[in-house]
């Protein structure tokens, strides 16, 4: 696939990463348009099914952005999210999708720069990995 532009889904916690994205905007910090943000009430609310459906529907990469360790608004939703990510990564490998396409990141609401930097780094990482094998299979 020439001129590959990855589609990346970012599940962002309302109490940190989503606000950090706002902060990035206020600070006029650019980040790639490849990242499609979905606001969620807590990273712990992201279900394995949401992630798998994202890949099934053509996402090349997915990341869940939650609060910093120990800072979850709902006590430990971010820890639950991290465990779930590990579980889904194993399932992705079973399916035949590189587990590196799914990540968990943490940040606080004030970290606009970190949000933009993370979005840029993940976009580059997925760009290097190339289109998801599911997308390639659909195209064939």
């Amino acid at each position: 696939m020439e001129n590959f532009e990855p589609v990346i889904i970012a599940f962002c916690c309302h109490y940190c990463a989503y606000t950090a994205a706002d902060m990035a905007g206020s600070q006029r910090l650019p980040y790639p348009a490849n990242v499609k943000i979905i606001r969620i009430p807590c990273s712990g609310k992201v279900d394995a099914l949401h992630i798998i459906k994202a890949f099934e529907n053509g996402a090349d990469g997915v990341y869940v952005a939650g609060c910093l360790e120990g800072d979850c608004h709902f006590k430990n939703g971010n820890e639950k999210a991290a465990r779930r990510i590990t579980y889904v990564r194993n399932y992705l490998e079973e399916i035949g999708i590189e587990s590196e396409r799914l990540m968990m990141v943490t940040m606080s609401a004030g970290m606009g720069y970190r949000f933009a930097q993370t979005a840029t780094e993940i976009t580059e990482k997925i760009r290097k990995l190339g289109p998801s094998p599911i997308k390639i299979a659909i195209a064939q």
Binding site: L49, I52, K53, F55, E56, Y91, E94, I95, G96, I97, P133, I134, A137, I138
Partner: peptide, 10 residues
């Protein structure tokens, strides 16, 4: 269902 669908598609 999603996992099977994707693995079979591959």
């Amino acid at each position: 269902a999603s996992g099977l669908q994707m693995a079979l598609l591959k």
